[in-house]
Write a protein that binds this DNA or RNA. Structure first.
Lengths: 116, 116
DNA sequence: TTTAAATATTCCTTGACGGGAATATTCAAT
DNA sequence: ATTGAATATTCCCGTCAAGGAATATTTAAA
């Protein structure tokens, strides 16, 4: 009866586990931006911005559209949806556990029994 | 009216951005476990298991209770709740954006205008 | 009190990653 | 055709994190 456990590609979390990239996606929440705009608003040098954007892009977190000279980056919903589902598989279970505290406590106590 | 944007400590994502630690928390979804049990089920050597658990513990993702010889690790709800809130600050906005597609498209088009 | 189990810690080595600087590439403007 | 803006890419370097092996520590068992 246990539903399938959502497995999240580690790439998503790995890409987000860096301050600058975290800031970038936070920025992009408010809408698409060019590389220059991102670098500006975050005080990054252009090459670093491009590099981080490449990581985000390689991991499917953002998407590019070429507009002449500029490259416009925007967020892709999918990874965040997946991440949302993954996290829920934790929060939901943990709430459930708090509900019937008895089972939880007895489970802890079981550990005290000497093994056969 | 815009709610405060949830900021997720990078420590949480950083701790989860590793396959073994990801596996550990996935295991702990089903209930508390000892170090040995975790190492067993994941095919890890005990020292590595302890190390990863230390990282998870330092970042507040798990919690220990000493039981004689054994150390029983279990998940802490808070970081996951926070992560959930953070992710929602993305998914919600992105859905909203899909709703009024017009604003979104014009926003893209604005980029074509030469700068003053 | 000696022995063994469970866990944590230390030391070492190696590979990955991020920043800096320089350079390549593409396109617009003149 | 030349110049300049916007972006990507490369190379080098320092740091940091993860794995392996060995060892220390605590506690139960004999």
């Amino acid at each position: 009866m246990a539903g399938r456990e959502p497995s999240i590609g580690m790439t998503t979390l790995g890409a987000l586990a860096e301050q600058n990239r975290m800031n970038i996606v936070a920025l992009l929440r408010d809408g698409p931006l060019t590389v220059g705009e991102i670098a500006d608003k975050l005080g990054l040098r252009q090459p670093q911005a491009s590099k981080h954007l490449k990581v985000l892009s390689d991991n499917g977190l953002v998407e590019v559209t070429a507009e002449a000279n500029r490259r416009i980056y925007k967020l892709r919903p999918e990874p965040f949806k997946a991440l949302d589902a993954w996290v829920k598989s934790f929060t939901s279970i943990m709430e459930e556990r708090f509900d019937n505290l008895d089972d939880y406590l007895s489970e802890i106590q079981d550990r005290k029994i000497h093994k056969p």
